[in-house]
């Protein structure tokens, strides 16, 4: 009598699949609802003036131009400090090292850094860059703190990109008499550069959205001017949002500005990550080798 059992088994399958599908729907709907809500509240205050003007009247009017500029400065600074070290470290790990104690130690170090809470980086940045090195609360301190936080991500995405270059490419180059160094420079890196840039864009998307590492190292709630030097403090969108809902005297006037700033931050971060994720899928697919 196989009939009833197999019907039962299919019934179980249908029920189980229904549960999983429902879970997926709940998640997607909840996340879609958040995005929709944040955008619809934010779009009300979005205007050309909002993007291009500094804040006015104690944050209750005007735009967020200095915060947008500050966000980009911090993101670019973080990448400038983390990218060279991260890529070279990845080159070492994939191209030059042999498995051994040092390499596994470095990997443990990278993993540990990757799992460290952002507020711990903030504490470190304050104690080290701001105080010990005397850089003060500045663009430089914030960018270096964000760079430290981005380093493990840069290393792992660069490693991933370098590993996708097939061994045969390296063997062909080496067999033609090229040195290891030349092979890396002329064969491996050019084939991995797309993946590395993609990864850097993803890392930058994460860095510009971070708040905790910059609270004590770079950010200021209110300034009308742009930083004149790397030693000036800056406004940044994430901190601006936080400040608008926790400080100031007119919460009801500040909340809409917070939503507007959140929308701009979301657009910046999602376009950076969207671009990165899209390209990563594209590169993975296009690969013919």
């Amino acid at each position: 009598m196989p009939e009833p059992t197999s019907t039962n088994r299919l019934k179980t399958q249908r029920r189980g699949f229904a549960v999983f599908t429902a879970a997926a729907l709940i998640i997607l709907l909840a996340l879609a609802a958040i995005i929709f809500f944040m955008s619809s509240r934010g779009i009300k205050v979005l205007s050309w003036e909002f993007i291009t003007q500094p804040p006015k009247k104690g944050m209750t009017e005007g735009g967020v131009f200095p915060a947008i500029v500050g966000t980009f400065l911090l993101g670019l600074g973080a990448m400038l400090s983390a990218l060279p070290i991260g890529v070279l470290a990845a080159v070492y790990l994939t191209e030059f090292s042999r498995p051994g104690r040092f390499v596994s130690l470095v990997r443990i170090g990278v993993n540990t850094l990757a799992g460290m809470p952002s507020i711990v980086f903030g504490l470190f940045g304050f104690a080290f860059f701001v105080k010990a090195l005397g850089l003060g609360v500045s663009v430089l301190s914030g960018a270096l703190t964000l760079g430290a936080m981005s380093l493990p991500i840069i290393i792992s995405v660069s490693e991933e990109a370098l590993k996708t270059v097939p061994m045969t490419f390296r063997e062909a180059s080496l067999s033609l008499g090229a040195t290891r160094w030349r092979t890396t420079l002329k064969v491996v890196l050019p084939n991995a550069v797309g993946g590395i840039i993609t990864g850097a864009i993803l890392a930058m998307g994460r860095a510009v959205g971070e708040t905790a590492p910059i609270i004590f190292t770079a950010a200021t709630f209110y300034t009308r001017r742009l930083p004149a030097s790397p030693f000036d403090e800056v406004m940044a969108l994430p901190f601006h949002i936080y400040g608008l809902v926790t400080e100031g005297l007119y919460p009801e006037k500040q909340l809409p500005i917070a939503f507007g700033s959140a929308l701009i931050l979301m657009i910046i971060v999602l376009s950076l990550s969207g671009f990165g994720i899209f390209w990563r899928y594209k590169i993975r697919k296009r690969r013919v080798w």
Partner: peptide
Amino acid sequence: VELLGSIPSVVYGLFGLA
């Protein structure tokens, strides 16, 4: 879903708060 994972925490915080 991966993309949604990159939304900054301060945005979620604002959603929770408001």
